[in-house]
Nucleic acid binder design. Structure first.
Lengths: 201, 201
DNA sequence: CCCGTTAGGATACGAATGTATCCATATGGG
DNA sequence: CCCATATGGATACATTCGTATCCTAACGGG
């Protein structure tokens, strides 16, 4: 066989170029030719490694989910050793855009979210992440409640759903520049204080 | 002068057609010809009443803001007679998509929000509504606090910002079908209960 | 050495887009 | 009555898009 090339690596480069465009100029600015230019290759190469634009778009969404997953796992790696509040703070801080890279990812995520609202094909790739997060945190909070770390009059599932929706809404306001990351983080802390009692270190 | 036609009425019809497309098929599906077809007129008519596609898009955003405003004013018309909690419940319920029409408007709103993130021209039309809402509610809550209707350890501005972000995040989850309107409303009520004390009628 | 296969360059095609132009028509004020 | 003008129909144009096709080059196994 002739010239062998690492297909996965090529595809990854193209997907990253796609996300770079989507996060800075929006999904509507994503075209085969733009991706080729951004990745520094010819149009043919993009066609060669992705049969469809659809396939390309789906790969972008998949990669985005993987990135979130990676960041989450990284932050909650030693979750067993963290206080319940520590777990919540870590997870919610991952959702919120902090540095430039996570801001870009949040932009792309938002673009995909909006596109999926009117594009069944994208919706099908299905972002199970929100539900996964909600379940994970609900288990944690229920455990914490049984351990007496939060008052019994709280409903864990409702609290968790609320906190995640709060983080999402705050993300929107950060992206649109209505608020900075610090202001958003402060609001989350405020709510964690009310849930878990006054702050830690 | 020959045949006179109500330009405002024509423009309104076209803007409504635009929003109908944007809310069901997304902003990327909005084209001059599609609007013409949706409104049952020729392409030329769309061109005649809007010089640009840009002007058309801006008119859609303006109309959307006006609708929100109208709905808000309607709900808070007798706000002076409402309990503070009643005001909050009314406002937050307006933000949340309830019936089909407000769901469609929320879809369009979200589409515009996402587009504005990468389109300076749209961002310039500027949605001052969030800030207006936040200020309005903050004043209300501060007053309620001074009247002793909520405990002094609450920070009105933070509470309001949190509630609005919560409503936004819940709206997202409702649009994506992760949750129904009732579930979202219940979560908001839950938080209002915690803020104002146990529920009213 | 050499040839079959993989990797990509070059180009084309039809559809859809925003915008511009040319022209018809009808109507209300003189 | 009649014509200047407001309204809009028909059509064209250059771009851009996704996709398809044709062909070349390189390279590793025989």
């Amino acid at each position: 066989m002739p010239r062998k090339v690492d297909h996965d690596e090529r595809r990854r480069r193209l997907t990253e170029a796609l996300l770079r465009i989507a996060s800075t100029r929006g999904l509507q600015a994503v075209s085969m030719r733009e991706i080729a230019a951004e990745a520094g290759v010819s149009l043919r190469v993009v066609q060669y490694y992705f049969t469809n634009k659809q396939a390309l778009l789906e790969s972008g969404l998949t990669e985005l989910g993987a990135r979130m997953d990676r960041r989450l796992k990284q932050r909650t790696a030693g979750a067993g050793e963290l206080t319940p509040r520590g777990v919540f703070a870590a997870v919610l801080d991952v959702v919120l855009p902090s540095d430039e890279q996570s801001r870009l990812d949040s932009m792309a995520w938002n673009a995909y979210y909006t596109a999926a609202l009117t594009d069944p094909a994208l919706a099908a790739v299905g972002v199970t992440l929100p539900d996964t997060l909600e379940n994970f945190l609900t288990v944690r909070l229920t455990t914490a409640q049984q351990a007496g770390e939060i008052t019994p009059d709280r409903d864990p599932r409702t609290e968790v759903a609320g906190l995640l929706a709060l983080a999402n809404g705050l993300t929107s306001s950060v992206l649109s520049g209505q608020r900075g990351h610090e202001a958003a983080a402060k609001i989350i802390d405020y709510h964690l204080d009310r849930l878990f009692g006054p702050a830690p270190a």
